[in-house]
Design a protein around this nucleic acid. Structure first.
Lengths: 109, 109
DNA sequence: TAAATAGTGAAGCCATAACTTCACCAAAGA
DNA sequence: TCTTTGGTGAAGTTATGGCTTCACTATTTA
């Protein structure tokens, strides 16, 4: 059972890896099995399993096993958290640029 | 001169590192010098320099040197690109969930 | 001018994380 | 039932990226 505790730190760490990004890319089209993902990324089943664990733990993916095949899909939670993080940085940054603008305006008086 | 060629891959790789995230965090409040960032992160000036290069190359930061002090600030470009990336994944994912909903609805007829 | 401060560049160390192999289990097909 | 397919777990290897040190340059201050 994965924790699925999405915080920006974990999420960004997870997305830092190119193979995991490939998995996300593949899953953004449609759900897929572990072996399908292995084929798509050119990596062993075991490796995919390990990556999936990371992706699940940070809320970027969800998986369920029916019979002998595990179906993997993206999860909205992680992406929502990540989006919120970026939005926050962007607004902080804009505030900075505004202040900079004010200072420049004052200097020109 | 850094390339400053922002693509999601580079950006996510860059943000995969905790120290680089600390730098971003620090800079989201206000611009800072290299030594200030070194103090804030508990890492050498050299290390900061290396991280800044990465952040600049992917359009997340910008720096300029006046006299002997290099001032570092966040750059909007990288964040815009990253935001676009997430938006894209989110919408692809929603499309998937919609399709899933339709299928479930058909099954219940 | 001397000393201190801010940063850069090269070179090397090292921990970690991604990956593999191997052995194994369980479901599905022949 | 035997075989194949899909996946898991443990254990080990290895490349890489983050960090350091050291030597150095360029500003700034005393």
């Amino acid at each position: 059972m994965p924790l699925r505790q999405p915080d920006p730190d974990r999420i960004l760490t997870a997305l830092g890896d190119p193979t995991r990004r490939s998995i996300v890319e593949a899953l953004s089209t449609s759900p897929a099995s572990v072996s399908h993902l292995a084929g798509a990324t050119g990596v062993t089943l075991t490796a995919i399993g390990q990556h999936l664990q990371v992706l699940e733990e940070c809320g970027l993916a969800r998986t369920e096993k029916t019979g002998r095949v595990r179906t993997c899909r993206l999860a909205p939670e992680g992406f929502a958290v990540l989006e919120a993080w970026i939005t926050e940085r962007k607004s902080l940054l804009e505030r900075q640029l505004d202040r900079l603008g004010e200072i420049l305006a004052e200097d020109n008086e």
